[in-house]
Design a protein around this nucleic acid. Structure first.
Lengths: 135, 135, 135, 135
DNA sequence: GTGGTCTAGACCACC
DNA sequence: GTGGTCTAGACCACG
C-alpha cells in the first residue's frame, strides 16, 4: 500500500495509519466497498506489530469508516468518502493551528513564520514533486 | 510568572514548561543571570506537583539553558539566549514540516494549504493582537 | 543482572546505575542491540522503586547510550561502546584527578601518595582476584 | 588564606573547607593557638555564603580541632595537629580506595589504571611545582 | 508486556 | 529558603 510511517513525529503509529486511511478515502484512492489490506499484510509491509494495525482498524471501524465483512476482511463503508473529506481538512487544520498557536505564543515574528512556511513548502515540493499538475 | 499549561494538548506538562522557558529566553523575557521561579513557587502557580517542574528544570539544566546557584535557585545561563533562539526555530519548524508533510501526503492541494495557513494566521492575530508594529 | 547498588556511597542510586550500565557496555558485557533489563525487572532485582531505574535509563537515553524500541524495551545503541569506553576513562580519571589534587594540596608527600596507591591496589586485588591473566 | 574551593568536585563546599583546615593543621601551616580567619573574612575571600563557612567551623569545633575563644575567634586546639595528621591520611586514602574500587569494578585494566595515575600525578606536578625538595 | 507521566509526600544537603 | 533524591502508587499509550 501507499502508507508511510514515521516513528517519532509525535503521532502514535496507529494514529498515523488511521489518518492515512482516511486521507486515502478522502482522495478517492480507496473507494467504498474496496477491501483494505489485511492486518498481517499491512503489518508486514510497514514492519509493524499486527496489534498496532489492529488498533488502527478498530478505531476506523468505530468511526464507521470501515465495515467488517465476516470471513473476508474490512471494506471501506459507503458513508466513508464524505466523512473523510470533512475529516481531512479538520485533522490538518487542527495540527496547523496548534503549531501556529505555539509560534505566536513564542513571540516568533509573523514574517519569520511566513518565511518558514514558504521554505518548508518549497522544500517539500522539491523533495517529492507529487501533485501539481501531473501525477 | 507568565506560563500557561494546557493538559491534554499532547505534550507532556514538563515539556510545555521546557518549551515556554526556552521561548521566554528566546524572546528576551528571561535574561541571562535572571532567576527562574523556584520549584515550589512555579508548582504552586501552575497547580502542579513540584516534581513535574523539577523534571522540566532538570532537562533545562542538562541542555545548559539553566545554571544552578546552590542555595539560591536556577538562573538563565549566558549562552541560553543564542541557544534558545535557535531552538525555538527548530522546534517550530519541525512541527510545521511534519504538518506540511502530512498535508501533502494526504493529497491536499497546495493552494488549499496556503489558504488554510493564511486563515489560521489571521484568525490567530484577531484572537490576540499580539505583535504587529503597534501594541 | 550484575549490578550492585550501595546506598550512601555518596553517589545517587540512579547515578550508580548509569555508571554501571556504561561500564558494562564499555567492558562488552552489554553489547549493542541487546536489551537492558526492563524497568520493573531491574527495580525488582535491586529492590528499588521503578522510578529510580527509569531516571537512570532516561539519562542514558539522553546521552544516546540506550535506544528505545517501543513496546519492547531499551536496547544498547550501536554508538554506545565507543562512547562508554571514553566515558569510563573520563569518569575514573576525573575522580582520580580530584583525589590527587586534594592530596597534593594537603601537602602530602608524593612518595606517600604513591605508596598509598600501591597499597590500595594490592589490597583490592587481594580482596577480589578479578583480572590478572588467570582467573 | 590558602584555600581553594572547587564547586562540583563532588564534595560539599563546607566539607572542602573542613578538609583543608585539617590539612593545613596537619602540615603545620596552622599551628595550635593560631586563629583561623573570621567567618566574614574567609567567606569574603572565597566568595561564599558566611553560613557555609560557619557550617565548616562548627563541624571543626565539634571534632575538637578548633576552640572558641569568646570575643576573639576560633583558634586551633592543642590536640589538633596529632588528630589532623591521622585524619589526613584517612581522608585521602578513603577517597582513593573508592576510586580504585570503582575502576576495578568497571573492568578497567590495572595497567591502564597505573598509567592513568602516573599521568595525573605528573600533570599535577607540572601544573604547580609545589613540593619536591624546594618550596 | 513495555516505558512515560504525574501526583503525593518524605527526607536530605546546601546556602 | 533552595534544589535533589527516593518511594509509592496510579494512570496512560503503545505494541
Amino acid at each position: 500500500m501507499f502508507f508511510t510511517i514515521e516513528p517519532d513525529n509525535g503521532l502514535a503509529i496507529y494514529d498515523q495509519i488511521v489518518r492515512q486511511v482516511k486521507f486515502a478515502v478522502a482522495s478517492g484512492a480507496l473507494a467504498p466497498g474496496q477491501l483494505v489490506p489485511s492486518l498481517r499484510e499491512l503489518a508486514g509491509q510497514l514492519a509493524l506489530n499486527p496489534n498496532t494495525v489492529a488498533r488502527a482498524y478498530r478505531d476506523l471501524q468505530a468511526e464507521g469508516i470501515l465495515d467488517m465483512v465476516r470471513g473476508t476482511g474490512l471494506e471501506v463503508s459507503s458513508k466513508a468518502p464524505k466523512a473523510c473529506r470533512l475529516e481531512r481538512e479538520k485533522l490538518i487544520r487542527e495540527r496547523l493551528r496548534s503549531v501556529l498557536g505555539e509560534a505566536r505564543q513564542s513571540q516568533l515574528a509573523e514574517d519569520d513564520l511566513r518565511t518558514m512556511f514558504s521554505e518548508e513548502l518549497t522544500a517539500l515540493a522539491a523533495a517529492s514533486p507529487s501533485k501539481s499538475k501531473n501525477r
